[in-house]
Simulated scan of single mutants.
Amino acid sequence: MEIFDDLEAEYDRLDQVFAGLSAADWVRPSQAAGWSVVDVLLHLAQTEEAVVATVTGTPLQAEVAAPNQDAAGVDEAMDRWVAAERAGPELVYPRWQAARRASVAALRAADPQRVSPWASAPLRPATLATTRLAEHWAHALDITGPLAIPYPDTVRLRHIAWLAHRSLPYAFTLAGVRPAPVRAELTGPDGATWRFGPDDADSVISGPAGAFCRVGAQRLAARDSGLTATGPHGPTALRVLRNYAA
C-alpha cells in the first residue's frame, strides 16, 4: 500500500538526518519545548514501540506505562515517558531504528480493516500509518529547523493534508464548535492541486499544502501561513486545524 511505502520513505529520509548529527547536535534544544534533539528521537522510538504493541496486541512493559497513569493529558504523558527513559544517542538512535522497522512491518502485516486503540480513537492500519508519517514529519521540523538542516517538502505531504482535513470534525468539536463542511484546495510541492472535501462546500481553505500541514501540526500560526480561508466556516476551520486527534 502506498501509505506504508511513503511512511518508510519518510523514515529513511529522517534516518539520513540522524546519521549526520554530531555529538553536539544531539544535545541541542529542539523546537519541541523542553526536549533536546535526542529527546525528540526517544519520543519517536517510544511511540513506534507503542504502534507495534497496539497493532499486535502486545502490552507495553509495566515500567514503561507507569509514568503515564495519572498524567493530565497526552502531552504530559509523553513528557513523563521521555523523562523516565532519557538516554544518550548511542542507545536512543538504534532503539528508534529497530522500532521504526518493527512498526512498518506490523502495520503492513495487520488486517487492513481491524482497528487498534490509539490516542483518542481506534484507527485502521493505513490511518495509523498516516498519523506516524505526520508525527515524524512534524518532529523532523523540530529537529532540522534549529540545526539549519534542509528538510524540503515532498509529495508525501498529501497524506498529512488528508489527515488534517479528515480530522476537522474532531477539531471543530474539540473547540466547542459544531462541525461544518469545509473544502481544502491546496497546491502540493510539485505544483499539483490537491482537493479534499465536498465540491459544494461554501467554506474553503486554499493555499500551499506545506503551510496547511504546518498549521495542522501547530508549527505555523494560521495568521502567518499565507493560506486563504473563505465562507462562513473557513476561518474557524483554519484556526482549529490539526493533524492529530489528541
Rank of each mutant, 00 (worst) to 15 (best):
E2G: 14
I3G: 15
I3L: 15
L7M: 15
E10K: 13
E10P: 14
L21V: 08
S22D: 14
A23G: 12
A23H: 01
W26M: 03
W26P: 04
R28H: 02
R28L: 02
R28E: 03
S30E: 00
S30D: 02
S30Y: 04
Q31F: 11
Q31S: 11
Q31C: 09
W35Q: 09
S36E: 13
S36C: 04
S36W: 13
V37F: 10
L41C: 15
L44R: 02
L44W: 05
V52H: 11
V55P: 02
V55W: 06
G57T: 12
T58L: 04
P59A: 02
P59G: 03
E63L: 02
V64H: 04
V64F: 00
A65Q: 02
A65C: 00
A66P: 01
A66E: 03
N68G: 11
D70Y: 06
A72W: 00
A72Y: 03
A72M: 01
V74F: 11
D75T: 03
A77R: 06
D79I: 02
D79C: 00
V82Q: 01
E85R: 02
R86M: 05
A87G: 09
L91S: 14
V92K: 03
V92G: 04
V92S: 08
W96M: 01
Q97G: 10
Q97V: 11
A98D: 12
A106H: 02
A106D: 04
A110N: 07
D111I: 00
Q113T: 13
S116N: 10
S116E: 06
P117C: 13
A119R: 12
A119Q: 12
S120W: 00
L123K: 14
T127L: 14
T130R: 13
T131G: 12
T131H: 08
T131R: 12
E135M: 12
E135R: 11
H136P: 03
W137I: 07
A140C: 05
L141Q: 10
I143E: 13
I143N: 10
G145C: 01
P146R: 14
L147T: 07
L147M: 09
A148K: 14
A148G: 07
A148I: 00
I149T: 05
I149N: 11
Y151P: 00
D153N: 15
R158T: 12
R158K: 06
R158G: 08
R158F: 04
L163W: 13
A164W: 05
A164I: 04
A164Y: 08
H165M: 09
H165P: 08
R166Q: 04
R166A: 14
S167I: 09
L168S: 10
F172L: 01
V177Q: 07
R183T: 15
A184T: 15
E185F: 15
E185Q: 14
T187A: 13
T187Q: 10
G188R: 08
T193K: 14
R195H: 07
G197C: 03
D199K: 06
A201W: 13
D202N: 05
S206A: 06
G207S: 09
G207H: 01
P208T: 09
G210L: 07
F212K: 06
G216N: 06
A221L: 08
A221K: 12
A222G: 07
R223W: 00
L227P: 04
A229K: 03
A229I: 11
G231S: 06
G231Y: 03
P232W: 10
P232E: 02
P235E: 07
P235T: 05
P235Q: 12
T236G: 08
L238N: 09
L238D: 13
R239Y: 01
V240K: 09
R242F: 08
N243P: 06
